[in-house]
Simulated assay, not measured.
Amino acid sequence: MSVRSAVSAGKSALNTMGLDSSIRAVAHPVRRNILEWLKSPQLNFPDQEYGQELGVCLGQIIERCELSPSTVSKHVDLLRSSGLLESQKVGNAIFVRRSEAAIQHFKMLMAAQISVQ
């Protein structure tokens, strides 16, 4: 196997692992809802006290989900570990936002995976 083939195979495996992680992340309806809500944070979280520059406060997402904080945190952690969400801690608050680059990459990988050749 040439170096070029080995590098290409490595990239393919990495992309497949990323694709699998992202598919698992969007497999649950709560996680899909979170991604959908964060697409338009001003519309879906208008009462946020901190503005939208940093993202949406995790507490706002917990309220909207109407689930226990630990359950929502697990959903957000899975989305974050897949790369689809970014988070930032400011003081005691955690802010999350969509990673649009990762979402676009996921869409590209998914389209390549299921497209007819």
Score class of each variant (00 low, 15 high):
Met1Asn: 03
Ser2Pro: 11
Val3Lys: 09
Val3Leu: 13
Ser5Ala: 07
Ser5Met: 02
Ser8Gly: 04
Ala9His: 07
Ala9Gln: 12
Ala9Ser: 08
Ala9Glu: 09
Ala9Gly: 01
Gly10Ala: 11
Lys11Phe: 10
Lys11Trp: 05
Ser12Lys: 14
Ala13Gly: 00
Ala13His: 00
Ala13Glu: 04
Leu14Ala: 15
Leu14Phe: 11
Leu14Ile: 12
Leu14Arg: 14
Asn15Ser: 10
Asn15Gln: 13
Thr16His: 04
Gly18Ser: 10
Gly18Ile: 02
Leu19Tyr: 11
Leu19Cys: 04
Ser21Ile: 08
Ser22Pro: 02
Ile23Lys: 01
Ile23Thr: 06
Arg24Val: 05
Val26Gln: 04
Val26Cys: 10
Val26Tyr: 01
Val26Leu: 12
Pro29Arg: 01
Pro29Lys: 03
Pro29His: 01
Val30Ala: 14
Arg31Val: 01
Arg31Phe: 08
Arg31Pro: 01
Arg31Leu: 02
Arg31Gly: 02
Ile34Tyr: 07
Leu35Pro: 06
Glu36Ala: 04
Glu36Thr: 07
Trp37Lys: 09
Leu38Ser: 10
Leu38Asp: 08
Leu38Arg: 10
Ser40His: 14
Ser40Ile: 04
Pro41Cys: 04
Pro41Asn: 04
Gln42Asp: 14
Asn44Gly: 01
Asn44Ser: 12
Phe45Ala: 08
Phe45Met: 07
Phe45Asn: 02
Pro46Ser: 04
Asp47Asn: 12
Asp47Gln: 10
Gln48Pro: 00
Gln48Ala: 00
Glu49Lys: 14
Glu49Gly: 08
Tyr50Asn: 03
Tyr50Arg: 03
Gly51Met: 04
Gln52Gly: 03
Gly55Phe: 11
Gly55Val: 08
Val56Tyr: 03
Val56Glu: 02
Gln60Arg: 05
Ile61Phe: 07
Ile61Gly: 02
Ile61Asn: 05
Ile62Glu: 08
Ile62Arg: 02
Ile62Asp: 06
Glu63Asp: 11
Glu63Arg: 13
Cys65Met: 15
Cys65Trp: 06
Cys65Glu: 15
Glu66Tyr: 05
Leu67Gly: 00
Ser68Met: 00
Pro69Val: 06
Pro69Ser: 12
Pro69Lys: 06
Ser70Ile: 09
Thr71Ser: 13
Ser73Leu: 03
Lys74Pro: 02
Lys74Arg: 14
Val76Glu: 11
Val76Ile: 15
Leu78Ala: 09
Leu78Glu: 13
Ser81Leu: 11
Ser81Phe: 05
Ser81Asp: 15
Ser82Gly: 00
Leu84Asp: 13
Leu84Met: 13
Glu86Trp: 02
Glu86Ile: 09
Ser87Trp: 04
Ser87Thr: 09
Gln88His: 03
Asn92Ala: 14
Ala93Met: 05
Ala93Gln: 13
Phe95Gln: 08
Val96Lys: 08
Val96Asp: 11
Val96Cys: 15
Arg97Met: 12
Arg97Cys: 13
Arg97Phe: 05
Ser99Lys: 08
Glu100Ile: 15
Ala101Asn: 05
Ala102Leu: 04
Ile103Phe: 01
Gln104Gly: 03
His105Cys: 07
His105Thr: 13
His105Trp: 14
Phe106Leu: 12
Lys107Thr: 05
Lys107Cys: 09
Met108Asp: 08
Met108Lys: 09
Met108Val: 01
Met108Ala: 07
Leu109Glu: 00
Leu109Val: 02
Met110Pro: 00
Met110Lys: 10
Ala111Ile: 01
Gln113Ile: 01
Ile114Leu: 14
Ile114Ser: 11
Ser115Gln: 15
Ser115Gly: 14
Ser115Cys: 14
Val116Met: 13
